[in-house]
Structures are given as structure tokens and as C-alpha cells.
Design a protein around this nucleic acid. Structure first.
Lengths: 247, 247
DNA sequence: CGATCAGTTGAATATGGTCAACGGCTGTGG
DNA sequence: CCACAGCCGTTGACCATATTCAACTGATCG
């Protein structure tokens, strides 16, 4: 499976997430410093990027692909606690170990910075520290929004919530169908969806079928989704209409 | 209900959270600047501190008491997404509105800073920005740990998880019983516990009774809890032994 | 004293989980 | 080329867990 970065040469100025990642606000000279401590790594779908508890040698940005953060209990139950998309930051400056497993859901390209030099650079570079604070606050908001989904929504609402998040995120990128319908491919298996939603994969499958039966979504194959009416989907999600941000 | 700060005069050097709050790493001169934009406010139990969607005029630290962050759906379902304890920070620099309701669970004393001057000060003061980043990363970890609780734990495990968090947090402050038993008062009603755990208050009540019946906890009245064996409680929570991170 | 509030408990029910069978695809090897 | 295994997903039958609705207790307050 190819990732979009095949044409990417490793130059920050060509970087697809240049304006959104942790380096977004950097000046030229700061970018030069980052360049000197950065390197690229690719991970295949399914591969673990960082193990929970391991000490991390690097931090970095996801450039292409999707990674997930998961927590695991001793008896094997798992909960996905975050989805990392291109431009998202991986790692925790100021702490050695990761609290969760980071796994490549699709093939992933990362821009890594050696951790020590990055921390030192951050101490000298308010632009980076400030951007990281912003991003962390956004992630905190997202995590808390997800807590509402996990704690209070029904299985059907959970599925609808996940679909509407993915749909809105892909809104800019993917081709829109007729009459403002949204079309996208699910980047997750049913099992990954279940891990994200705190459900079993059987329940995910059933509710997907139910939403399809009720005309809320159309399915072509297992992964290709068309949402004829976003408003309807958002109602199903319990997020009446607005949903917060729909630039 | 009296709060412990009655003797607190409003001087940073006497502040009970001086070394843990957002101002923890400040030098004397930075502290002086903070003093000039700070003021105290008290909120009675049950009072709303900030409404979701409102624009905030201030940010600040909880000095005494407990506040909670809650999300609400149109149909009234609510989920608590954070508990704010003394030293925790309220508000989001760089954004006007709050994404959640902030409510005083007990009587609360806050040290407030006018938002604009605080943001300006933060831009000039790496110590504050850095401390805020640390605290935000900690909150993010806590939120993600809670996602596992909400998504994958049984009602009994959820209750045990909440009790062990409260117990560990009060560990330093409260008097320990004999043989390392932990003793504390629940700062939450059954309903607030339910909101935090994604359960109904009836289920909370039943599981509390069950844990009491099984000798995992002792109850005196409704709120006074003794945990004779923390290890046992942690097992019940599914968090084998360690429990992760809570300095 | 009644009223209100926090909490407990019971009985019936619904929602999602568990276990199991099965369908469709893809890749491999005879 | 077909047979087969492995993976992802769907569906059904049954069951467990937590919710719902309701009655009830004990404390506090005016």
C-alpha cells in the first residue's frame, strides 16, 4: 500500500504538514535547527511505533498515514485513546516513557527528532513550546469530547459519532458526491473501530448494518462510505446539527 | 461547609498550592507580576463557575475545594470529563470560550487572573508557559486513562477505579488508619460519581454496597470510606498493582 | 410536622456482549 | 486451474450487565 509521501524529498519547505505540525510557527533559523536533528522513518501498517512503558529516543510528527494510541489492561481488554493523523505530534517532552502503545494503523511516515536535542531546542524556542501547548490543549479537548461518547452514547450514536468525525476530517480532501453528500474510505477495520468506541466488533458490524438499512449511510464494499445527508448523521450521533466546527 | 482556606490571607508565599500550581516555577519577580493581576473568588457548592460556550474573563487556579468539568447533550445526558483539585488550572489561554461547564462540587476558592494580562505575561514568561504545558500533558494523560475506564471497565471496576484515584490523591493529606489502611471522605455525591463514571446513580449505589458487602471497603455513613487493603482495591479496579502515574 | 434531598433496594427490561456459524476475498501451493 | 487457509466481516441465538421505574429509608430544614 503506497503512502502519499513517496514524492516527498525530506525538505521542510515541501513538507505536507509544514503549516500544521509542531514546527508550524517556526522561523527559518529555527527550522534550520530542527532540520539538523530530524530524520524520517516509515512504519508498515500494523507495526508498533512505540511500546507502552518503553523509553522513547525520539519525538516527532506524523507526516502521512494514521497511527493510534492504545491502552491495554492485563487481561487483554484494549481501548484506543487517540488517533494520530498527519501533523499530529508523538511523544512527551519532559518524560521518558510512553504511557500507551503507539501503533501504525496504516503505513506511516514520521518526521522524528532526537528527544534530548529537541527538548533543549524547545527550551530556547518559544514558537515551538507555544505551538506544542496549543496542540496539546486541542488534544485535551478532543479527548474530553471522546469521554462523552464513551460514557454516555449508545452503540448507534457511537458509530454515528465516529463516522461524522472521519467525514468532517476528510471533508476538505475527498471528492464530494452530488448534492453535498460526503464520501470517504474508512481507515479502520471493524475491530479498530470497536477499540476506539468501547464496543465489540460484532456490535460495530450490527450497527453499521443498521445505519445502512436505515439509509443513514451507503456502503460499497466494507470500507467505502457515502453519507447522503450529514445533518441526519449528526442527529444520529446526538450532536445536534452544529457539532462545533464545520469551516 | 467550611473550606480550609479560611486562614489564607491572599499572600502567594502562604498559598497552599504555591509549589504545585501554574505559578510553581516562578521567580520572585514573576510572582510579583502575577500578584498584580490576581484576585480571589469563592464559589458555593453547586454554583456554576463557567458556562459552556461563555467567553471567559479569567483563568486561574483552584486553591481549595473541588470543581468539575462536565459536557452535556441536548437531551440532558451529562458526562463529567474532569475533576479539578487544588492546584489545578482552569481556563484555556488562547481561546475565548469554554468547551464545558465548570461547576463547584464543594465550596471552592479560586485564584483568578484576568485573562488578557495573563496571556501577555505568559508570552514573556517561559516558566509559566512551561509549567502550563507540563500540567496540560498530565491532564491529557489523566483524560486518556479515564477513557479506558469509561470504555472498557465494568461498573464494579469503575467504582473501584474512582475510589482508588481519590484514595491515592488524598494519601498525603488524610490520616492513615492502622496497618496502612486508607481513610477518606468522598467529595462526590452518588450522582456526581455516576456522571464521572458513565453510570446511573442506582448502579453506583449498588456497586458501592457490593464492595462494602465483599469487604473491599468499609462505609461509615454515606461518605466516609476506609480501604483496609489498597492492593485489593486496585485488583478490583483492574489496574494491577502499579496504577501508572500519580506522583 | 411535612417537605425535600441523598441514598438504597427491588423487579422488569433493554442493550450490548458472548459464542458460534457462515460468506466472500485474497494469496498460496499442488 | 482448483483447493485450501487466513483474514475480515456479517448474522443469529442466547445471555449478562446495567438501566429504568418505582417504592422506601433516614437525615436535615423550615
Amino acid at each position: 500500500m503506497s503512502v502519499q509521501s513517496q514524492a516527498f524529498t525530506g525538505n521542510c519547505s515541501d513538507c505536507p504538514v509544514r503549516h500544521r505540525a509542531v514546527c508550524a510557527h517556526c522561523e527559518i533559523d529555527e527550522l534550520d535547527e530542527l532540520e539538523s536533528i530530524k530524520y524520517y522513518r516509515t512504519f508498515e501498517a500494523g507495526q508498533t511505533i512505540i511500546w507502552s512503558g518503553d523509553k522513547m529516543a525520539f519525538v516527532g510528527s506524523v507526516i502521512a498515514g494514521i497511527a493510534s494510541l492504545t491502552q491495554t489492561m492485563e487481561d487483554g481488554r484494549t481501548q484506543m485513546v487517540g488517533l494520530l493523523l498527519p501533523s499530529d505530534f508523538v511523544g512527551r517532552p519532559g518524560r521518558d516513557g510512553s504511557a500507551y502503545d503507539v501503533t501504525a494503523t496504516t503505513d506511516v511516515v514520521m518526521c522524528c527528532f532526537r528527544k534530548k536535542p529537541f527538548e533543549q531546542l524547545m527550551a530556547r524556542t518559544p514558537h515551538i513550546a507555544h505551538r506544542l501547548l496549543q496542540m496539546t490543549l486541542d488534544e485535551l479537548d478532543a479527548a474530553r469530547e471522546w469521554m462523552l461518547v464513551l460514557g454516555r452514547k449508545t452503540a448507534r450514536e457511537k458509530i454515528a459519532s465516529l463516522l461524522s468525525i472521519i467525514a468532517r476530517r476528510d471533508a476538505s480532501l475527498s471528492p464530494n458526491g452530488p448534492s453535498g453528500a460526503m464520501v470517504f474510505d474508512l481507515p479502520l477495520t471493524r475491530e479498530a473501530m470497536a477499540d476506539y468506541l468501547g464496543l465489540t466488533l460484532e456490535t460495530v458490524s450490527r450497527q453499521m448494518s443498521a445505519l445502512k438499512r436505515d439509509g443513514v449511510i451507503l456502503l460499497e464494499g466494507k470500507r467505502h462510505v457515502t453519507v447522503p445527508d450529514m445533518g441526519r448523521l449528526m442527529e444520529e450521533a446526538g450532536d445536534d446539527s452544529d457539532g462545533g466546527l464545520m469551516a
